[in-house]
Design a protein around this nucleic acid. Structure first.
Lengths: 396, 396
DNA sequence: CAACTTTCTCCACTCTCAGGACAAAGGCGA
DNA sequence: TCGCCTTTGTCCTGAGAGTGGAGAAAGTTG
């Protein structure tokens, strides 16, 4: 199939495309109810979208008491590629224009191997998805990387955990390889966009999305849009001081949040606890696997291990304290917790909630849900697809 | 003079009004250079603005090598009232449409006396300004209050330091009394808008404006717009924990930033130091006045008093640590320090800078100016005038 | 005073868009 | 099955929005 190259010609068309993408109505009549246009003008714009091929006719809608409406839908052949590069693994997924996942692959990987090696892997995963018959090509791709990005150019800048990527032209390189438009963003921002599109943050305009994995980051959505900051490093909360004169951190300071709680810190603390004989449960798991991860701690806690629970609680307190400050500052309508440690579940959530509800202003917390992300590992790739579709569904 | 009731009829007119307000060009030709319109269309819109009376002809511009252009300007009779209600004093100013201050009054006052008493004072100050011949009435008024505001309705909600104001219909009441449109906002947001309009933050789209007075607050500007949060309490950083298990705070928690550094906390610490005999300078001032304020500490520091310097430094460290976290989180392009304690000047600034530059990410601080506000006590009233003019210079 | 530049006005033309008239298509009760 | 209703889609007219060119008006410069 030849790839789509058309873009909406004006704001009306862009809005129609986004309505269709976001699961709104798909009959011409109901589209008219949601857009501020006369029926005649709407018909003209829909016809033009049909001409471009971005939208196709889709039979007749059920009657609402009179003549049946003609349905339209986004071209079912459109395919977006969503890539979520984490510190230790990579997710690649294919979606249709409604951003539904048609195929999804996950592979372990070390981002420090550098952009060339990682790109090779991403491209081979994309090729595998293509080979499975989902599509012959992509109309656009979104990609998230675990570090700050100069957004307009799609280039990582000074990323602490992926030094080899500094200045690498991710957008340009991937666009060249795939032959389609590409947008690049921080992985945390994409997770936020994913939860906003299809997860717990649907229809929330101001929220924070805290991703706790190997590191800790925070996606900031203000007024419906992602806030990236002037150098693309907004949301980098891993190195906020959580404990004065606390543990030394890789960044050179002491007491950083990330040094006290993150996937890596939790694993380290669990190993220490096991070695000190504080927990038989953890010790036996350590003996069995030679190492421990957040998953082991979660399992131990679920089995009732007090030490594991303490580790989770203590970590949750630290995260919660930092989040409490951010809540006072930003006054969000929702806080989403996601990332690798969501397996810690409600023990973690309870600790975070306790801190936030105790420390932040009542006015800011009065009606503030603090919840786990709904999409798990698919949030990133859905957010990536959303990123590129937002781009392509805007006037050129 | 009859007050203006006209509003711009469309976005073009709104943009023209804002260009004229913000000190842009005022010749028709140069307006054309800054707006995306053909000359013919521009002429039509300018003529319509002339008809409404919002804009008046203003002679001829100097030649740029050919025919001289016709100047226009905002109606010189337009008058905005800017009101900045602080915890312990109130500022009232009259501006023209370009937001230049024509008259300014400041009076001590206790906001806890409640809205009725404060309103009476504000109205009498406004009357005094009117009586001085500056204007016979107002085309609009902006008012800032030291607490969270439900912005669309212009109503304070759950304000900690002004309990009697909760739910008081500030906007409606003032509008009734003055007979003109009124907008209400948090005083810190107005300070940010003031510095954005006429101060150090000109042409900066993302910045933080930290106001340290009786309390501590932070104006957040993201993408050129003030971020107010879902309940209007965004920027309320006074109760972020700065010192674990630190001093008890009025809010019930311990170690809040405000409990460790603010105008009130600094005065309290200075009195303590004087009583403990740590500083002759402070002790003699205490003996002379019976009390101490931030001004005394600033003077003592300027005179070389080590204890006063220590107090400033320690306070600056606390504020700086919190700001460091906010900088990592928000990644602003500028941090402005303002409020009553700006008298502490560069000693305070140095402490804050040290903390921020040491603790925040290099990428976020690399090109980050941290500066004192430029407008001092006029920032609030200018911001208030800006608020109402933004409102009135938008299509109805 | 001629040649050039800049600014302003006027006009013709295109495009957007709303809203009404009307046709097409379906539901529903008698 | 036949009217009568509702809903949907199409066509047409007319009001504005907006562009761009022609040319007049007003200045500068040599």
């Amino acid at each position: 199939m030849r790839r789509m190259t058309a873009r909406p010609a004006n704001a009306h068309q862009a809005k129609l495309l986004k309505l269709l993408r976001d699961g709104g109505p798909n009959s011409r009549a109901q589209l008219g109810d949601e857009i501020d246009l006369s029926r005649s003008k709407l018909a003209v714009e829909v016809d033009r979208l049909l001409e471009t091929g971005l939208v196709v006719a889709d039979g007749l809608a059920a009657s609402r008491g009179g003549r049946r409406s003609h349905n339209v839908r986004l071209n079912p052949g459109l395919r977006f590629l969503g890539v979520d590069i984490g510190a230790t693994s990579v997710d690649v997924a294919v979606t249709n224009a409604e951003l539904e996942i048609l195929g999804h692959l996950n592979q372990p990987m070390d981002v420090r191997e550098g952009p060339v090696a990682v790109f090779e892997q991403v491209l081979s995963m994309a090729a595998k998805l293509r080979a499975s018959g989902l599509t012959e090509g992509f109309d656009g791709a979104g990609i998230g990387v675990p570090g700050p990005v100069r957004f307009p150019e799609g280039v990582p800048v000074a990323p602490p955990i992926m030094p080899g990527w500094d200045g690498f032209p991710v957008r340009e390189a991937l666009s060249q390889e795939l032959g389609c438009p590409v947008m690049v963003d921080n992985d945390v921002n994409l997770m936020a966009m994913g939860e906003q599109h299809a997860g717990v943050a649907r229809s929330v305009g101001d929220f924070l999305c805290v991703k706790i994995g190997t590191g800790i980051g925070c996606g900031i959505v203000a007024g419906g849009d992602v806030h990236r900051g002037v150098t693309g490093s907004a949301g980098d909360i891993g190195h906020i001081q959580a404990v004065p004169d606390g543990r030394p951190c890789a960044c050179g300071n002491r007491g950083c949040l990330e040094a006290h709680f993150s996937g890596a810190a939790l694993a380290r603390d669990a190993v220490e606890a096991a070695q000190q004989g504080l927990s038989e449960e953890l010790a036996s798991r350590l003996a069995a696997n030679g190492t421990l991860t957040a998953v082991d701690v979660a399992a131990a806690a679920a089995a009732g291990d007090a030490t594991a629970l303490d580790l989770i609680r203590e970590g949750g307190n630290h995260v919660g304290q930092v989040i409490a400050g951010l809540v006072s500052f930003f006054n969000p309508g929702l806080v989403v917790i996601g990332g690798g440690v969501t397996g810690l579940g409600h023990n973690l959530l309870a600790a975070i909630r306790t801190q936030v509800y105790r420390q932040s202003l009542p006015l800011a917390t009065g009606n503030l849900p603090i919840v786990l992300g709904e999409l798990g590992p698919t949030a990133g790739v859905i957010g990536a697809a959303r990123l590129i579709s937002d781009h392509l569904f805007s006037p050129a």
